[in-house]
Design a protein around this nucleic acid. Sequence first.
DNA 1: TTTAAAACTGATATCGTTGTCATTGTAGCA
DNA 2: TGCTACAATGACAACGATATCAGTTTTAAA
Lengths: 339, 339
Amino acid sequence: MSYKSTIKDVAFDAGVSIKTVSRVINNEPAVAKATKTLVLKSIKKLQFKPNKDAQGLRSKKSFLIGLLYDNPNKYYLSDVQSGSLKACSETNYNLVLQECKNNSANLITKVINFINLANLNGVILTPPLSDNNKLIQAIETLRIPISFIAPPNKSFEIWSSATDSDAAYALTNKIIAMGHSNIAIIKGHKDHSASKLRYQGFCKSLEEHGIKLNPTNELQGNFSFESGYKLADQVLKKKNRPTAIFCSNDSMAAGVIKYCYQKGISIPDQLSVTGFDDSMIAQEIWPSISTVRQPVEKMAEHAAKSLIAKIGGDDSKQNLTKTFKSELILRESLGKAPS
Amino acid sequence: MSYKSTIKDVAFDAGVSIKTVSRVINNEPAVAKATKTLVLKSIKKLQFKPNKDAQGLRSKKSFLIGLLYDNPNKYYLSDVQSGSLKACSETNYNLVLQECKNNSANLITKVINFINLANLNGVILTPPLSDNNKLIQAIETLRIPISFIAPPNKSFEIWSSATDSDAAYALTNKIIAMGHSNIAIIKGHKDHSASKLRYQGFCKSLEEHGIKLNPTNELQGNFSFESGYKLADQVLKKKNRPTAIFCSNDSMAAGVIKYCYQKGISIPDQLSVTGFDDSMIAQEIWPSISTVRQPVEKMAEHAAKSLIAKIGGDDSKQNLTKTFKSELILRESLGKAPS
DNA sequence: TTTAAAACTGATATCGTTGTCATTGTAGCA
DNA sequence: TGCTACAATGACAACGATATCAGTTTTAAA
């Protein structure tokens, strides 16, 4: 149970040299089929697992990839992790996590240090880090591949997805189809490119329907529950208050909903509310939130997979770009406009 | 930017042998103060960082600890991670995550394989894995330390905390003080020892107040939102329905609350509901949930710290046992019993 | 056949660190 | 002074894999 066999043991058992065993392990081509079978048999028999440290030392690979994040939505983070982990567990890479403050002064130094210390072979950036060009450039000087889980950042052609903007567009169309025309939007955190995309999709729909966005209906949130609550207070106190609020994520929608309860505003009879992301809370709250579900876990899995492929030297385009379909989820919080 | 200095470079720069540098790095005692200063200066000058793989290969340490979990509450998991990560980042250990299915047939094989493959130096187990004796025993044969984030499991004296039970007791006292006597409990997942402890605290309070628990008021949930919703349906359809429901976590409480909205049962006027954990949802939902806050992040941090200490060979008792204080959070969902 | 090319295999150096053990220097004491 | 401890240091092997390059066998063409 305790003894771990080495490549040497396998070589002896199979009657070949250690280099041949190494070749088999790494799937190198120049091994005769018969030899390979023999070696594989010994590997199985001895339950041999290559020692990562030795591999790493010699080949300069650590088989470690980093997932860097800045305190996003916990649901979101959790999905990102599951997805990345799934991709890792199919290979022999491991994931190490690191929380970073996007706004901290020494962010870049810290990240670079972390990458060096842990000897990461690649990193995955989640929003808003994925929108931080300076950080990206700094990491690139280390010559390790990066993957992004996020909407695209124009300066780096990596992730092609108009998803956020398209989905916001579709959702807004739906709101308008329910008869609303006095619609407010609570925008997301300024540092997240997703905020902008969602806003763009929202505006596009309004424009196409000839609806003008009243400036007082344009609120700047930051994706937090509190910001939703606070901004609801601001916009719903107005005389000609909106009949629908487009929230750029579910947490802010939850904030709006809580505010409405306290003020006796009935949802969706007097006010419709929509969210974004389909977080857990979207269906646990009442009324449940109409929202947009993004296949975050799948996106993360893809990001990790393509990162691993890039580390392995596979530069094919298909690893870089992928578009995911998002889905409109209609629930109780969106209803017909009051007449 | 690209060249990484090695111990050899430092040794040359400082004019000492590599072994002496190694001693300085590892804080070994037998180094003269002047030499140490000299070496430290060179290390700084050359920005030397020891190569983990080489260290690991030679010393058998990987500086990796595993966090094993089975799909618990996402909020909970997130807190656990933050805490563990915090402890890690203060040392040079890294955290690797692995999701495991507690009920899967080959759980043990999988975990053992994972530990061997990643060459983990220790693992942290979260509930319900922390309650799985077979798993624990299997890991122990690998001779690596384990830490638990959980209420205590009697067979392993590691974590002394009557917290869950005490907190449940205190919360139930509070419910009774509000005039309730017909109280139902939705129990947590059977595999989690926390479920039992919360149940025990609940029962203790009832007993002390001379209240008998009606068997139909004892519901078996599994910590999920859905189970709360379903069991609410079951218990609230009864003729003599309870005026308060003690839910063993917040998600189930949210399920109950949603059910009540749909059926027009007003909270807390007609029914009081309490949760446990103080998850995010507890305050985002309306009415917000009266609950018990556990310092999960702190607990995780302690677990990781003590694990690292154990790996380092520090067996002092203080690393093994620690009790954390939990806090009663009273919010809108708990009110006076209807008269 | 012969022979060149290709396929396969192995001996040995090497990655960057720590472990072992030998050596040196120096303080303390009889 | 001479001796013993013990503190301080260093030379070199070792960890377990991969890289290099040379050697051997097989294949296929001449």
